[in-house]
Design a protein around this nucleic acid. Structure first.
Length: 114
DNA sequence: CGACTGACGCCGA
DNA sequence: CTCGGCGCCAGTC
């Protein structure tokens, strides 16, 4: 019930990913002050309330791969959302080199301040 | 309490 | 590129 602290940090961090850009699970974990705990990010997303409108589809694996199996409904939906923001998805993956979010740490400190 | 399970990640073979 | 193995950790059973 009150384990919300970590989840909230994660959700809040993901909210900062700008449209047209993506981030990886590990990246979000680090920025949320939870280094090495990428799995928690996935966990947090799976239990994220609809009301928060968390842009979960902007979070990918460290390889740029969509975390869901190719062809799955989830994968298709995620691909759709991304392409809607002009993020190119090829073979269930995105080229991080071109679309990975590179936040300004100073600004993050201002917006997140844990 | 132990075993298993993930929307993960990194390294070595 | 594919596997296997290990680290990580909150939940579940």
């Amino acid at each position: 019930m009150l384990n919300l602290t970590n989840n909230q940090k994660i959700w809040k961090t993901i909210q900062l990913i700008p449209s047209g850009k993506v981030a990886t699970y590990g990246q979000i974990a680090d920025l949320s002050g939870l280094p090495g705990r990428a799995r928690l990010v996935g966990k947090a997303l799976s239990s994220a309330p609809q009301e928060l409108n968390v842009p979960w589809y902007r979070v990918l694996r460290s390889t740029g791969q969509i975390a869901f199996p190719v062809g799955s409904e989830q994968s298709k939906k995620q691909t759709g959302y991304l392409q809607q923001e002009n993020v190119a998805v090829f073979n269930n993956r995105v080229k991080l080199k071109n679309f990975q979010w590179q936040p300004d740490l100073g600004e993050l400190l201002w917006k997140l301040e844990f």
